[in-house]
Design a protein around this nucleic acid. Structure first.
Length: 414
RNA sequence: GUGAGUAUAGCUCAGCUGGUAGAGCUCCGGACUGUGGAUCCGGCCGUCGCGGGUUCGAUCCCCGUUACUCACCCCA
């Protein structure tokens, strides 16, 4: 037997229904905010991710599915979606049209990580990108959309954590200060933290090793070191969230694993997930577009993990499918049954009919197992009388209808 | 990349200090030859993850390997 690739999964009924529900809710909500969909290729030139995500990040340095095509070009299966969208924006000059300033996407992404609960090698994200708006209001609106989506899906237990990681003007000063503060106490930090202190100091703040906590709690907070512009921006985002009653928790040690973030970053976490509890995350990435050769337009965006969201999206109650099962008996009645099936479908009634011959009893059993709402019996008596026997499998009630009559009955009872 | 746990029928799992497998559910059929779900009866399905070792003999013990799960790491 050939197995599926490690870290990938097959998705089908009934789990697929939660996915459809999430996707439908997202599309509907995004439309209400003027967003339109963008689909970009699953593979891109490796260079795109190196330049945007950052070559020091874990994603780029050890998690990418990179390969050479037949002409020796280095290609990569996208490990995240924003880079591809930004590439497309620059390449197609989407920034020239106001219609393209609010974009959303849904699709698979690939990272070579050790799979665990809520984390796969092929995983799916839904995300939005707002282009060209540097205002705190933009940050606020994007966060609101995420929160609203959770609300619409009936997910009660979410916490919005928010922070500012500063900008190229104020961050270097902060990192320096952080490095100084921790340098004297590096003996109390774990191996990873000591390494990160050199490579990516901000990430030290994110460490979860218990022994590091006392040191980190006392470390200088970035919110106290922001430049005037970043500080004012962050304040206004928080004001708007408070004003419009979006609950949030300032999280001074929240940082992100992608280099392109500036100013506002945020996450929505759910205690219902396992260790991988980040449900949705994102932030501001002014400068990314310019870095990829486009105009210096500011942007804000976030992405949510579909696998994780599906894990905690409440399932609707299980009820019978509004379909009809056609039970026919006697080989000569198969073709008449097929004609009835196609007439019903033309009227919009979903119909299941099997090619295999069964007894009435087994047909009824089959209809029950299929969990359909109605069975239609097509036997000699029915053909002679030109009436279909229609049985409601929930109530047990039985009716005799002509085909047209049956069709309208099903349509009004499904 | 690191650590721990698990691997026996389609599914969930039992299998005593080593003597080459069993239950429940599902599925199929019958009791009920034109009526499902309940009940009863019967039936199908296993290289006991894979490779090696120890042993007269291994599902059980040992080594390796692969997959899955959870956690670290990282992230959605």
């Amino acid at each position: 037997m050939i197995n599926g690739v490690k870290g990938t999964q097959d998705l089908y009924f009934p789990e697929i229904k939660a996915w459809h529900r999430i996707e439908a809710a997202a599309r509907e909500l995004f439309a209400l905010y003027g967003y339109s969909e963008i689909r970009t290729p699953v593979m891109e030139h490796t260079e795109l991710f190196v330049r945007s995500v950052g070559d020091e990040t874990d994603i780029v340095s050890k998690e990418m599915y990179t390969f050479q095509d037949k002409k020796g070009r280095s290609l990569t299966l996208r490990p995240e979606y924003t880079a591809g969208v930004m590439r497309s924006v620059v390449e197609n000059r989407l920034h020239d049209s106001a219609r393209h300033s609010r974009l959303y996407y849904i699709g698979p992404q690939f990272r070579y990580e050790r799979p665990q609960k809520g984390r796969y090698r092929q995983f799916h994200q839904i995300g939005i990108e707002a282009l060209g708006d540097a205002s705190p209001g933009c940050d606020f609106e994007c966060i609101t959309i995420g929160r609203e989506l959770m609300r619409r899906l009936g997910i009660a237990q979410v916490e919005v954590r928010i922070n500012s990681v500063g900008c190229p003007r104020c961050r270097p000063a902060y990192t320096e200060k952080l490095r100084e503060a921790l340098a004297g106490r590096s003996g109390e930090l774990c191996q990873d933290c000591r390494r990160r202190l050199e490579t990516n100091p901000l990430r030290v703040l994110d460490c979860k090793v218990p022994s590091c906590q006392p040191v980190l709690t006392e470390a200088p907070k970035i919110s106290e070191c922001l430049c005037d512009e970043c500080a004012a921006h962050f304040e206004e985002v928080k004001n708007l969230l408070s004003e419009f009653e979006v609950p949030f928790v300032p999280w001074p040690r929240l940082v992100r694993g992608l280099d392109y973030y500036k100013k506002t970053v945020f996450e929505m976490i759910s205690p219902l997930l396992g260790a991988q509890d980040a449900l949705l995350g994102g932030g501001r990435y002014d400068g990314l577009l310019g870095q990829l050769g486009g105009p210096a337009l500011p942007s804000f965006g976030w992405a949510l993990g579909l696998e994780r969201l599906a894990l905690i999206t409440p399932a609707g109650e299980e009820k019978r499918e509004p379909e009809v099962y056609i039970a026919w008996m006697g080989g000569e009645l198969y073709k008449p049954a097929l004609r009835i099936a196609s007439k019903l479908r033309e009227k919009g009634v979903p119909v299941i009919i099997d090619g295999e011959e069964r007894s009435v009893k087994n047909s009824m059993k089959r209809a029950d197992r299929l969990n359909v709402k109605f069975a239609v019996i097509v036997g000699e008596d029915e053909i002679k009388a030109e009436r279909l026997t229609v049985k409601n499998l929930e109530s047990g009630e039985q009716f005799a209808f002509g085909v047209e009559e049956a069709a309208s009955f099903f349509m009004s009872n499904s």
